[in-house]
């Protein structure tokens, strides 16, 4: 599904990703862990197409389509979703109107007619339940005045509404208390299927107790330096990332 080869990217001329390789197949959940500054969030942002990141080499194919050639909206329409670490507050744009626009723009790209209002509202009602989202929140301005937990739940609600092929969760667990974490993880687990895939970027093993990954990758200094089963997360939790310094010099 997702095939990243030798991805290199920089921000303000500082090289962050230094030849990253990653392959994600349908039905899989991959966790990406690593210390601050390793390039975890850069990976999510580069894939989503944030223009402050410059791609200097490599490719990122989603079902054969190179995402790096597309505008951010077309990447989303091709089936990529980034759950933001810091979701933006947009006063004056209602959550519902925003989602309706997104759903219909994606449908238009796929040559489908706009969704009927009734069908759309039915879907809203259904997907809200996944993240225990109230109608009140859904009708408010996009993320305006939402708590940290509500914002993250809203990301997962959007994910549920847009039904992407590949979702990247960028530190979705940051700033969540244990109850909110459980709600978010539960929502994600219900959305898992054999047809989609998740890349979970996180600092902590805690989230992975709830969203159990098939693979854990360690991102260090712009490259994936180690890949293992879910137990690798526990090892990292125990040992920290310091031992990787050695690893990095060895492989460099």
């Amino acid at each position: 599904m997702l095939n990243i080869k030798n991805l290199q990217a920089s921000v303000e001329d500082k090289e962050i990703l230094k030849g990253l390789n990653l392959e994600v197949k349908a039905g899989e959940v991959h966790a990406i862990m690593g210390p601050n500054g390793a390039g975890k969030s850069t990976l999510g942002n580069v894939l989503a197409g944030r223009d402050s990141y410059e791609v200097t080499g490599g490719e990122a194919l989603l079902d054969g389509v190179d995402l790096l050639d597309l505008s951010p909206e077309d990447r989303a329409r091709e089936g990529l979703f980034l759950a933001f670490q810091y979701p933006v507050e947009i006063p004056g744009v209602s959550n519902i109107n925003f989602l309706k626009t997104a759903v219909n723009d994606i449908r238009e790209y796929k040559g489908l007619p706009p969704m009927e209002a009734k069908e759309f509202l039915q879907m809203v009602k259904e997907k809200q339940k996944l993240v225990e989202f109230s109608a009140n929140l859904a009708n408010r301005s996009l993320n305006e005045g939402f708590s940290g937990g509500e914002k993250k739940r809203n990301e997962i609600f959007q994910l549920a509404m847009l039904n992407p092929k590949l979702a990247i969760l960028d530190e979705t667990d940051s700033g969540l208390d244990i109850d909110a974490l459980r709600i978010v993880a539960n929502g994600v687990n219900q959305l898992r299927s054999k047809d989609n895939a998740f890349v979970v970027i996180t600092h902590y093993q805690r989230l992975l107790d709830y969203i159990v990954p098939d693979f854990v990758h360690v991102l260090y200094n712009g490259r994936i330096v180690k890949t293992g089963p879910k137990e690798l997360a526990l090892e990292l939790e125990e040992k920290g990332y310091d031992w990787l310094k050695e690893y990095d010099t060895q492989t460099a």
Binding site: A48, G49, R50, D51, S71, P72, E73, R75, A76, R77, F81, L82, F84, P87, V88, I90, V93, F98, T101, A102, V103, D105, I106, Y109, Q158, L162
Partner: peptide
Amino acid sequence: FYLRSRGIG
């Protein structure tokens, strides 16, 4: 960017 990342033109 947030809006565009959701597929909105």
